[in-house]
Computed example of a mutant assay.
Amino acid sequence: MKDSLHFLREVEPNTYIETCGVDFEDFEEGQVFEHRPGHTFSEASCLRYARHSFDLSPGYSDQRYARRVYGDRVRVPETFVLSAMALTTRTFGKVVANLSMVNCKVDAVYAGDTLYLESEVLGKRKSKSRPDQGLLHVSSLALNQHGACVCSFERKLLIYRRNLGPYERAGY
Rank of each mutant, 00 (worst) to 15 (best):
R130W: 08
P131K: 09
P131Q: 10
P131D: 08
P131L: 04
D132W: 10
D132M: 12
D132T: 12
Q133C: 14
Q133N: 13
G134I: 01
G134L: 07
G134A: 06
L135N: 11
L135S: 05
L135W: 03
L135D: 11
L135Q: 11
L135G: 14
L135I: 02
L136H: 10
L136S: 11
L136P: 08
H137C: 05
H137N: 09
H137S: 09
H137Q: 09
V138A: 01
S139L: 08
S139W: 09
S139A: 14
S139Y: 14
S139I: 00
S140T: 08
S140I: 02
S140K: 06
S140H: 05
S140L: 02
L141H: 14
L141P: 07
L141Q: 15
L141M: 15
A142T: 02
A142W: 00
A142K: 08
L143G: 06
L143T: 06
L143N: 08
N144A: 00
N144T: 02
Q145V: 01
Q145Y: 01
Q145D: 09
H146F: 05
H146N: 10
H146R: 12
H146E: 05
G147Y: 11
A148H: 04
A148W: 04
A148F: 04
C149Q: 09
C149W: 08
C149F: 02
V150L: 07
C151A: 10
C151P: 03
S152W: 10
S152A: 08
S152K: 13
S152R: 13
S152I: 01
F153V: 00
F153I: 01
F153N: 00
F153R: 07
F153H: 04
F153G: 02
E154F: 06
E154D: 11
R155N: 07
R155S: 03
R155Y: 02
R155G: 03
K156F: 03
K156Q: 15
K156W: 04
K156G: 08
K156T: 03
L158Y: 11
L158P: 09
I159D: 09
I159A: 09
I159G: 10
Y160K: 15
Y160E: 05
R161L: 05
R161S: 07
R161W: 12
R161C: 08
R162N: 10
R162S: 12
R162M: 15
R162L: 12
N163M: 05
N163E: 13
N163F: 10
L164V: 07
L164F: 05
G165I: 01
G165T: 00
G165H: 09
G165R: 05
P166I: 01
P166K: 04
P166D: 03
P166S: 10
P166T: 03
Y167P: 11
Y167H: 14
E168A: 14
R169M: 11
R169C: 13
A170L: 13
A170W: 15
A170S: 12
A170N: 10
G171R: 15
G171Q: 11
G171S: 11
Y172H: 14
Y172D: 15
